[in-house]
């Protein structure tokens, strides 16, 4: 008995020793910078003031400033709106197209590949494509509309349409990710389940809600989570298309942090915003996991 316990302890020690190099590297590349970020967020670090990086006299100063300053809460609300729009549109487009493409045919394979193109383009190229498309003077879309006698205003310079436009462009770029995840899940579904439902007289809507959706739910949850996290990191489209404007109409949290850090050199304050963003994403991920959407009911 005691010999067995001793062997188990030795085994655990051996495993830990084996893991140690990987854990050390992981700590160095992830935990280290994260700890530095948090430490920096407790200082008023700015390169203009020497020694400000070691000034911990008001450790919560940046956080208090952020929470009681009008621009930061506003940017969080905009962020929520953008995330809701992009994740919603990408989920709908991704699931819809995956259902349409879930057919065995060589042409469908070609079509599937075609749909992946936006996702593999560098984000800055996507931003430039949309810049061209939304600039009335050079846009082929505007030329086409002019041919029909229509002269709509610019969508990027209108405070009402600027954010939805960013969400739409982001959806164009990233819906293939959701589509791929859902399509892979759909193709894993045993055909017998579908046949059985059909024999039982299920119509298309019932098939989707009661047979297909429960099956793809775990994959869909992962896709939504990934897209949600990515939506919080939205940057190139805003940088190229709107620069956070008009006014502050598209100054989401990530962009707000960028302006504070790189335009005004408030590195400590930018770190505080980044720390709050990391915490927010962590809580959000945890909440989605707790809600149980990812659990496979059949398991």
């Amino acid at each position: 008995m005691s010999a067995g316990a001793g062997w188990a302890r030795a085994q655990r020690r051996a495993f830990l020793l084996g893991l140690a190099p990987a854990l050390i590297v992981l700590a160095a590349v992830t935990v280290g910078p994260a700890a530095y970020l948090v430490a920096t967020s407790l200082t008023p670090l700015t390169p203009v003031r020497p020694g400000s990086g070691l000034d911990f006299s008001h450790p919560l100063g940046n956080y208090i400033q952020a929470l009681f300053q009008s621009s930061f809460p506003h940017s969080v609300l905009l962020q929520a709106e953008l995330s809701l729009l992009t994740v919603g549109m990408q989920t709908l487009a991704g699931v819809g197209l995956a259902l349409l493409l879930d057919v065995e045919s060589r042409w469908m394979e070609v079509l599937r590949t075609g749909f992946l193109v936006p996702m593999v383009l560098p984000p800055i190229v996507v931003a430039i494509i949309w810049k061209v498309l939304t600039t009335p003077d050079v846009s082929p879309a505007y030329s086409l509309l002019a041919w029909f006698g229509l002269r709509p205003g610019s969508l990027v310079t209108n405070p009402v349409t600027a954010l939805p436009l960013i969400a739409f462009a982001d959806t164009w770029e990233w819906f293939p990710f959701t589509m791929l995840m859902v399509l892979a899940a759909l193709q894993m579904q045993p055909r017998e389940q579908l046949e059985a439902a059909r024999i039982d007289g299920a119509n298309s809507r019932q098939m989707f809600w009661h047979v297909r959706l429960p099956f793809i739910r775990p994959a869909l949850t992962v896709a939504v989570l990934f897209r949600l996290i990515d939506s919080i990191k939205a940057f190139p489209l805003i940088y190229v298309l709107t620069d956070g404007g008009p006014g502050r109409a598209t100054e989401v949290t990530n962009y707000y942090a960028f302006v504070q850090t790189f335009n005004f050199a408030y590195w400590g304050y930018g770190s505080a915003i980044a720390t709050m963003m990391v915490a927010g994403v962590f809580v959000l991920s945890l909440a989605i996991g707790r809600l149980g959407f990812g659990r496979d009911e059949d398991a």
Binding site: T157, P159, G245, P246, G247, R248, A249, V259, N263, F264
Partner: peptide, 28 residues
């Protein structure tokens, strides 16, 4: 003035808000 870049951005935001019709000039 060393802090002008910060003020420059505030003027940009204000004028964008007025030109786009999001805010009245006085409020912006």
């Amino acid at each position: 003035v060393p802090a002008y870049p910060q003020i420059d951005r505030q003027i940009n935001i204000a004028l964008q808000s007025v030109i786009s019709g999001e805010k009245k000039a006085a409020q912006a």
